[in-house]
Design a protein around this nucleic acid. Structure first.
Lengths: 112, 112
DNA sequence: TAAGTATTCAACCGCATGGTTGACAAGATA
DNA sequence: TATCTTGTCAACCATGCGGTTGAATACTTA
């Protein structure tokens, strides 16, 4: 169950990242775990809206939660951003070389 | 006009990438320019649906088109994937180090 | 047990998405 | 000009999204 269908996984990850509030939440969680209330505070939307965003992030497995007493502690799962990064890494060659190198690349390897 | 609002730019890029058909189209364009018809062929949807996907990709500036006679030539603009890659690069440190290194990182740098 | 705090759920709203079909436009060619 | 090909546009449909509000749940504390 660890290896989800990788296409749907990318769907859910990129979809999760397509919203600025959600990206902001991930940034906030990068340096510290937070409760739902703490996460919601800086965002100009209702707590329920933030709760929905967290569900989206959780579905993409980019965060995990743990109940600790009265609160729920939300934690980043940064390793699960990796599939997105790897998908993008395919295109590294197109911006790390100059355009004429790209041209060469395309002419020499035009299958698949 | 080159530097769009970077938040909206990320919104549109990640949204564009959240659909498997669109990701497939980008992959197809990585090795060669193609006409709209050529792009549509391998996908089990109508030409009009593909045309819409191309509009989304164009809005995110991930492709460009050029009319060449009767056809329209579609070309990848891979450099514009870079903002997404850079956004993700922030999280490199979280998966390139072991978990205890991450722990150290978080304890030593918990501002911002 | 009652009250307070933290968070989610359910219902709703307006709008966007991804798909369809059929009509239309743009360009090449007979 | 008429016709063929390539691609888009417009209208429509079902579904999903991001937001709200108010009720419900889960836990802590008095």
């Amino acid at each position: 169950m660890v290896k989800r269908n990788s296409v749907r996984q990318l769907d859910s990850i990129f979809h999760a990242l397509s919203d600025p509030t959600r990206r902001s939440i991930l940034r906030d969680l990068a340096t510290a775990e937070k409760t739902v209330g703490e996460i919601a505070k800086p965002h100009p939307v209702s707590l329920a809206a933030v709760s929905k965003h967290l569900k989206v992030l959780e579905a993409a497995e980019l965060i995990a939660r743990e109940r600790r007493g009265n609160f729920q502690i939300v934690r980043l799962r940064p390793a699960n951003l990796r599939p997105a990064d790897e998908w993008l890494a395919y295109y590294d060659k197109f911006w790390s070389r100059q355009l004429d190198a790209l041209q060469t690349y395309m002419e020499g390897d035009d299958d698949e």
